[in-house]
Write a protein that binds this DNA or RNA. Structure first.
Lengths: 224, 224
DNA sequence: GCGCACTTACCGATCGTTCAGTAAAACTAA
DNA sequence: TTAGTTTTACTGAACGATCGGTAAGTGCGC
């Protein structure tokens, strides 16, 4: 059918995440009105997906927000789903990166847990639109199901940490680890629904609040 | 364009909520193959909306899951959006009902808060598909925005309770009430994403866990 | 024979995607 | 320097499929 369509789009391969990166050699002339590059298109696409939902965002509407035509978008990406794939890769890559950092692999279980939760908040805030998109997936397509599976693996890793900390006696044992983890992530993931970067609540303060509420609860305690 | 679309669908008005209600009472005759009635269509529609997302659920697919034709669906409801309206009315009606119960209006602030949270968990579980649909709204249409506004009002009421309890000295004051409420609802609302009724975790146990984690946190406390 | 609960057949609009063509910049060779 | 070639970044029109919704007819129990 279409002879050239499938052929690999050059930049997609690496998991590098594409944040800036070596690309272009900078020689990008950029005289007059600069043309779009893929990261710019992706940013605007993800914002639109979050505003209207992925399914409800048509390529026409997306083109409108870019100020170009539908077909111009197809110059940069091979399909609508490709935009989704690139976005999800970025979000998942950042999240998975937390688990391989020293703070997440060395030390007492409860401190590792704290480190991972703090890291999750950090990624959520710094990659807010991308993680938002990830957290709203429904699993309609193979791509979405794969992303959900990777997210579930991340959850499982944290759940294991909770269990470890509980076995070590530093976390309460009267609520099971699975439920605990889910409530924990429910709390953290909800951040994408209401947090506005640049507002009065800083990223660090937010992370502190999350850790405080999660570990010590809302109640005023006698001892402390 | 479509002349009849707007005209009020008869049943939407009252807050009756329609939980089961007078109808059928389960004694649903069902001799041979019973024809569909509106509540049955609504149940299946809401399930489909939750499976695929509202936008991604076509009327054709919905008809397929009902085992009938698209037009048959239009015999029972006037539009796709009408299905959404009926579903959201049910979820919001139940949630708002909590706030007017005695347990939510009488007594100490922290006990009223506990009552409302427990009630929210109860409604979430008992009306799981309907509340799930509500919690996933994006606000693309007027209808969705209205529903989101009502949900926000509910959140505000709870936020006021948190503030009251904090002023009374029963809740910690080092995290502000707005953030607290949002984290609280993040935790509670996440239930729709993972809770399976009929599983090992009962509704009452779930509510207990939520209250425990929210008020006392995960940490093992010295004093108690 | 009449209303209820559908059915088949279809409408215009919109969807994601493709296509042929093109202006302008960038590179190449003389 | 300049003519020729290639690459980049697009435009506008169109495609088949599918969308939400409608019109008109059909079987069937009362």
């Amino acid at each position: 059918m279409n002879p050239s369509a499938e052929s690999g789009s050059p930049a997609t391969g690496g998991g590098s995440g594409g944040s800036g990166g070596a690309n272009g050699g900078g020689g990008n002339g950029r005289s007059g009105r600069a043309p779009y590059d893929l990261p710019a298109v992706l940013d605007i696409a993800v914002a639109a997906f979050n505003d209207y939902g992925y399914d409800a965002t048509s390529m026409g509407l997306l083109a409108e927000r870019l100020g170009t035509s539908k077909s111009a978008v197809y110059y940069h990406v091979s399909s609508k789903e490709d935009l989704l794939r690139l976005a999800l890769e970025r979000a998942l890559g950042e999240l998975e990166g937390i688990l391989s950092q020293p703070g997440a692999t060395e030390g007492a279980a409860d401190e590792r847990l704290r480190y991972v939760l703090r890291g999750a908040v950090k990624v959520l805030v710094e990659e807010l639109p991308y993680v938002t998109l990830l957290l709203r997936l429904r699993g309609n397509t193979e791509l979405e199901r794969d992303a959900l599976a990777r997210r579930r693996e991340f959850d499982n890793a944290v759940s294991a940490l909770v269990e470890e900390a509980r076995d070590a006696g530093t976390l309460r044992a009267d609520v099971d680890a699975r439920t605990t983890t889910r409530l924990l992530f429910g709390m953290i993931n909800s951040i994408v629904e209401w947090y506005k970067p640049g507002g009065p609540l800083t990223q660090d303060q937010l992370a502190d609040d999350v850790i405080t509420v999660a570990f010590d609860g809302l109640r005023v305690h006698d001892g402390r």
